[in-house]
Simulated scan of single mutants.
Amino acid sequence: MRSARYFLLPVWLAFAANAGHAHALDPGYLDIRQLTTESWQVIWRMPDVNGRPMEIDAVLPEHCSPARGPDPTSDEAAWLSVWVAECKLDLAGHPITVTGLEAQRNDVLLRLQPLDGEPTTLRFTPQTPVLTVPKAPTIWSVFASYFRLGFEHILEGWDHLLFVFALFVLVRDPWRLVGAITAFTVAHSITLALATFGVLRVPGQPVEAVIALSIVFLALEILKQKDGQVRLSEQFPWIVCFCFGLLHGLGFAGALSEIGLPPTEIPAALIAFNIGVEAGQLTFIAALFAFVLLGRSSTHLMTPTVKSIAKSATGYSIGCLATYWLVERVSSFGL
């Protein structure tokens, strides 16, 4: 089983070749807040695509004027369009549309805040670009939205996935690996909560740089492995994962701060997001084990020399990409 993991190298190289950016999570965000009986403030945030707003647009129900916002302006992270819409009828029971979303891979998160009543959190996807505002929102809509957000974040966040991949290559015992992943989740849940409630504030750029450094550390551990010797990071991987998980949690906090949390449902949203992250990590690990089992029948072809080369290639591939991210992030300090 151990040797078979190195057959993942071609899969990893294809994976790394498509990882142009460490974070793919960049959903749109639509905040609609009621000001008076008939007026609503709309804040429409569109992801940036090569210096231009993504080709999507938010459209309110036809009884609202204007149903679309003005041309967006850039805040260097995304594109914002803000306006006040006059709606003759309530928004509940009427459709809101995100045009062009069906041609994208991103989702759009909607937060609707009426004057009287609980905020509603909904999620547009390429498959569901039109949603009808429910008349009786529940906490389960918040939970479902943020669970999916956490699940997709870990599966689309290249640096977090690379950390899990390196851990998979490093740790031999499956149950020890699952324990390490769970320790990682517990740790990032702590710092994510502290950052969300304003107890802990750390600049995003240094956090992202240290996350890349944590992957470099695991790459070095892979390269230093020797048969018959168990390194501390293999024997007690949950310690390493817990420490680095505290840092990764701050990275998750940066992602959540970009799209916001429902003010009255913050605990539910955080719990759902963390459960989604854990589910995403375990799904990724399960997929890696499936690849290993498929390649297990070919392990007899792996001589000690081939195994050594494959291990070195895997470690250096992980380390080089993580080092590139580290240099890129450190060089952006102060920009």
Rank of each mutant, 00 (worst) to 15 (best):
E234F: 00
L9T: 06
A313Y: 06
V277G: 03
L167W: 13
G260H: 05
R105D: 10
S214E: 13
F244C: 02
W83M: 03
F242Y: 10
A272I: 11
L131Q: 05
F291L: 15
W12N: 12
L282Y: 07
V178P: 00
K88Q: 11
A255L: 09
R201P: 03
R201G: 04
S257G: 08
L8S: 03
F151W: 09
C241I: 02
T196C: 06
A268P: 01
G100M: 07
T36V: 07
V216N: 00
V178G: 05
V42F: 02
S297V: 11
A19W: 10
E152K: 02
I211S: 06
P134L: 15
P129N: 02
S233G: 00
P263M: 12
T73H: 10
A92Y: 07
W79S: 03
L109C: 04
E102K: 04
L155E: 08
K307V: 07
W79E: 05
Q34S: 11
C241E: 10
D48V: 09
A24F: 08
L80A: 11
N106K: 03
S257C: 05
Q205Y: 03
F15R: 05
D57A: 09
K226I: 07
G198Y: 15
L213N: 04
V277S: 02
V49L: 05
P267W: 15
I239E: 05
E234R: 13
I43Q: 03
A136M: 12
R2T: 06
A255S: 12
T182K: 04
D107P: 08
T97R: 03
A136W: 08
T299M: 02
E76V: 14
S81L: 11
Y316A: 01
L60F: 06
L162Q: 04
I96Y: 02
A77L: 10
L161P: 01
G251H: 00
R52E: 15
A24D: 14
H63W: 05
P66R: 12
R231E: 14
F273Y: 12
G117K: 12
M54K: 04
A22L: 13
T191V: 06
W44A: 15
G179E: 04
A193I: 15
F15L: 15
V327E: 13
V207L: 08
H300V: 01
M302D: 00
R172F: 07
P137I: 00
Q127A: 08
S65W: 03
P304Y: 13
C241F: 01
F165E: 00
I139W: 05
N106G: 02
K88L: 05
S317H: 07
E258V: 09
K135L: 15
L30F: 07
C241H: 03
N18G: 12
T36M: 03
S214D: 14
W83Q: 04
I309F: 12
G28V: 00
T99V: 15
A78K: 08
I211T: 06
M46G: 06
L326W: 14
D48S: 14
A187H: 14
F244W: 09
V98R: 00
W140I: 13
P267A: 14
Y324E: 15
P267S: 09
M54R: 04
G245H: 09
F289W: 15
K135S: 15
E265L: 10
G204W: 04
